[in-house]
Computed example of a mutant assay.
Amino acid sequence: MTDWLTVTPGDAPLIVAIPHAGTDIPAAIEARLADPWRARKDADWWIDRLYAFAGALGATTVRTAISRSVIDVNRDPSGQSLYPGMTTTGLCPLETFDGEPLYHPGEEPGAVEIEARRAEFFDPYHAALTGQIERLAANGPVVVYDAHSIRSHVPRLFDGQLPQFNIGDNGGVTCAPALTAAVEAACVASGDSHVVNGRFKGGWTTRRYGRPETGVHAIQMELAARGYIDEPATATAATWPTPFDPARAAPITRTLRDVLTAARDFALSQRA
């Protein structure tokens, strides 16, 4: 564990990756930002708290505290878009989801700095994740569950209101259909809206590690944030993020516990 990377090992064949809950920005980078709040706005707010129960299920968690505005550990490091033809952000984003510039003019990171950030943060994060996958996969199939959230309305990225639960397996490529079905069933039971492979089909983590033919099954869950915190009509420094309240989040926490239990039990069934 470092001051920005936390790995909490468990014994169950389930890994919960949390790549975007971090808000830490090195001071030298923050000084070049147009607005430090803006650079934190698109964090997956409170996801680490929302999934705090994962350890009780025996899951391993891998989490970075570094802001996605510094480097996005869920993007293809080659720079290739995960969603060709659609608006998205890159490895070291230059703008927010809403299209606002992150840096003062002329202060954007160049190729050399991007490579340095990759070596300092991206590579160690994925080395930790790979190490945990290898540790658990030594005993049989394992599930990598990539945990995310986003504001329910981001017009630049998608039309209208996002479904509550957005399940991604990259079109059935990154995990067995039975895992997707089990996760989907838990979402259906909640009574809230859901979609499989909608706007979010799975980021680089899901696509990189999901190799069901080798026993590594990866699936992404993108939550609409309204499921566990109140969302303002307009996100400003004064209104966003809203505080995390365990009581407010209790209903979706119950569903997510069912989701992770289903994922763990799927992996265990593959080991029988």
Rank of each mutant, 00 (worst) to 15 (best):
T8A: 14
V16N: 03
I18V: 13
A21K: 01
R32Q: 10
D35H: 07
R38I: 09
D42R: 00
W46L: 00
R49V: 07
F53V: 12
L57R: 11
L57A: 15
G58S: 14
G58V: 13
R68K: 05
S69H: 04
V73R: 02
S78F: 06
Y83M: 07
M86R: 15
M86V: 06
T87C: 03
E95Q: 14
G99R: 02
E100R: 08
P105N: 12
P105F: 12
P109H: 00
I114R: 06
A119P: 03
F121Q: 01
P124Q: 02
Y125G: 10
H126N: 07
G131I: 03
N139R: 15
V143D: 05
A147D: 06
N166R: 09
A176L: 12
E184R: 14
A185Y: 08
D192N: 06
N197W: 07
G198T: 04
G202H: 10
T205Y: 05
T206H: 11
G215E: 06
G215C: 11
V216S: 02
H217T: 12
A218D: 05
I219C: 03
E222G: 04
A225R: 14
Y228M: 07
T236K: 11
T236L: 09
T242I: 11
F244A: 11
A247M: 15
A267N: 13
S269T: 13
